[in-house]
Design a protein around this nucleic acid. Structure first.
Length: 482
RNA sequence: CGGGGCGUAGCGCAGUCCGGUAGCGCACAGCGUUUGGGACGCUGGGGUCGGAGGUUCAAAUCCUCUCGCCCCGACCA
């Protein structure tokens, strides 16, 4: 039996598998309002670990956290033409409060560029007030038509960074610094390889001059935009009058950026690593890194084994390992093995009478199939072995994900070939591209694939556009996307 | 909003055609035996059959209206 009992195989029905994993692993549950979800403790702890690692990186690069309000005057949204056009279809608007109709409707923030722009205009007078490097952790609301747990919910959690700078160069540097930061997080914490690139006009954030993205490949070959960093130019500065006197006493508009990673990242972790047994969590983010499953035949053994399990747990905690002893008596070991595998715990310690007698334990790696992933280790070496195994699993998960992505990245030279491969294999398509906005729209209409980005990693030489046949030196990444 | 499907115990479903007063599996509770890859036995608790109205001696079942959810298409972190 390959998979977890009762779990749909990802090969058979990927989206069903995804939903089941989220629900059965107790990451989240549906909430009564359509399109909203409850993030359960296990899922929330995972999110907290994402937060912690991102937040650490923000602070290291000079950013500070603040909080801006949930409600935004409707008129603010309207100040930036593209912005309001982009967001108006999905706004939740409060028209009544305190028992009467409001004079001006309040928008529940879909993102906070506008209210933050408004505040920045109050705070900025001189080049000496710049840069402003603020991040906020918040919830936002976008009334989506089709929702999916973690990937697209009407309300979601995220961080949004909003910075203002004196020069174009500085703002652009910031935009790219954050993109690198996101990529570093994705690869080194989430073990998800990403492609850095710039969005085409069609996919650009409403109101931005340029949008940059990290794109990750999910287990079904689809792309997931996992973080974005926007260079906003002076668009919002002009809309909100963020002006300062420069060193030459000249009045200038500030240059702003915004960037975000959301709870969608949890979806990325699920889909980039999950398998037919369920979730596989990268050790650096896993709420539980090691689970200890005690095993005993006779009640008399139980006490000693549980005591030893606790002793091991204490030792591991002392070494900063997130460990849990599964001391539930109503479940058998086999059940627990499967359950913790479903929930993605990277490493399991099995401790039975034989082990106790020999001063050993069995270690089982989640990233390797049943027997292959099991080793026996002496108790005296346990802590160092666990630590090195966690490091190894983390690295192995990244390289496995990278190998998977590379194996599912194709380069095609004609549109027919593209369509054929997209239908049969899926995955990413790294192709020479000289098409127009309309060409892109047409391809999307016919194949549902979109340009995920124009990757930073561009070829040296020229090639022929797979769609238009024109010569070009630009490549694009096409894929089906969430 | 267009197309398709579904609402019966916490979950998954049967029962609906052909009306007779609700059942199965899992889960849950108690007791006992079990425990190295999803144990078993016995006992037990749990239902306004999505909602409202109608037909009928009698409605989960037939009729009318309604509400909600899921999947597929047009937008998005």
């Amino acid at each position: 039996m390959a998979g977890n009992k009762g779990l749909t195989s990802p090969q058979e029905d990927y989206s069903r598998w995804y939903n089941e994993v989220v629900l059965k692993a107790e990451l989240a549950d549906y909430s009564p309002v359509k399109g909203t979800m409850v993030i359960r403790p296990y899922g929330y702890t995972l999110w907290e670990n994402v937060q912690e690692q991102l937040d650490r990186r923000f602070k290291e690069t000079g950013h500070v956290n603040a909080y801006f309000p949930l409600f935004i005057p409707m008129s603010f949204l309207e100040k930036e033409a593209e912005h309001v056009e982009g967001f108006s279809p999905e706004l939740a608007v409060v028209t009544h409060a305190g028992g009467k109709e409001l004079e001006e409707p309040l928008v529940v923030r879909p993102t906070s560029e506008t209210i933050i722009g408004y505040m920045y205009s109050k705070w900025v007078r001189s080049y000496r007030d710049l840069p402003i490097l603020i991040n906020q952790w918040a919830n936002v609301v976008r009334w989506e038509l089709r929702t999916r747990l973690f990937l697209r919910t009407s309300e979601f959690l995220w961080q949004e960074g909003h910075t203002a700078h004196a020069t174009r160069e500085e703002a652009m540097e910031e935009t790219l610094r954050i993109l690198d930061l996101y990529a570093d997080f994705a690869e080194n914490e989430a073990a998800i390889p990403v492609i850095k690139g710039i969005k085409t006009e069609r996919e650009r954030f409403a109101g931005a001059v340029a949008s940059y993205t990290i794109e990750a490949m999910m287990g079904n070959g689809w792309a997931l935009q996992s973080g974005t960093s926007h260079f906003l130019g002076q668009n919002f500065a002009k809309a909100f009058d963020i002006k300062f006197l420069d060193q030459n006493n000249q009045l200038q508009y500030a240059w702003t950026t915004s960037w975000g990673v959301s709870t969608r990242m949890v979806g990325a972790i699920i889909m980039a690593h999950g398998d037919e047994r369920g979730l596989r969590l990268p050790p650096r983010l896993a709420p539980i890194q090691v689970v200890i499953v005690p095993i005993w035949r006779q009640a008399a053994d139980g006490k000693a084994i549980l005591a030893k399990a606790q002793e091991i747990a204490t030792a591991l905690k002392g070494a900063s390992v997130r460990v849990k002893v599964d001391d539930r008596e109503q479940y058998q070991p086999g059940y627990k093995f499967n359950e913790w595998e479903l929930r993605g715990v990277p490493l399991r310690i099995e401790l039975g009478p034989r082990d106790l007698a020999a001063n050993k334990v069995v270690l089982a790696r989640r990233d390797r199939p049943a027997r292959e992933g099991k080793t026996t280790v002496a108790l005296s070496d346990l802590t160092t072995t666990v630590q090195s195994l966690l490091t190894e699993i983390q690295a192995s998960m990244l390289s496995t994900a990278r190998a998977f992505r590379d194996a599912h990245t194709h380069s095609v030279s004609s549109y027919d070939e593209f369509k054929e491969y997209l239908a049969s294999e899926g995955g990413f398509f790294r192709v020479y591209w000289a098409g127009s906005n309309e060409d892109e729209a047409h391809i999307k209409e016919e194949t549902k694939a979109t340009i995920r980005c124009l990757p930073f990693d561009q070829p040296e030489g020229e090639g022929t556009c797979f769609y238009t046949g024109k010569r070009t030196n630009q490549v694009a990444i096409f894929a089906r996307a969430y």
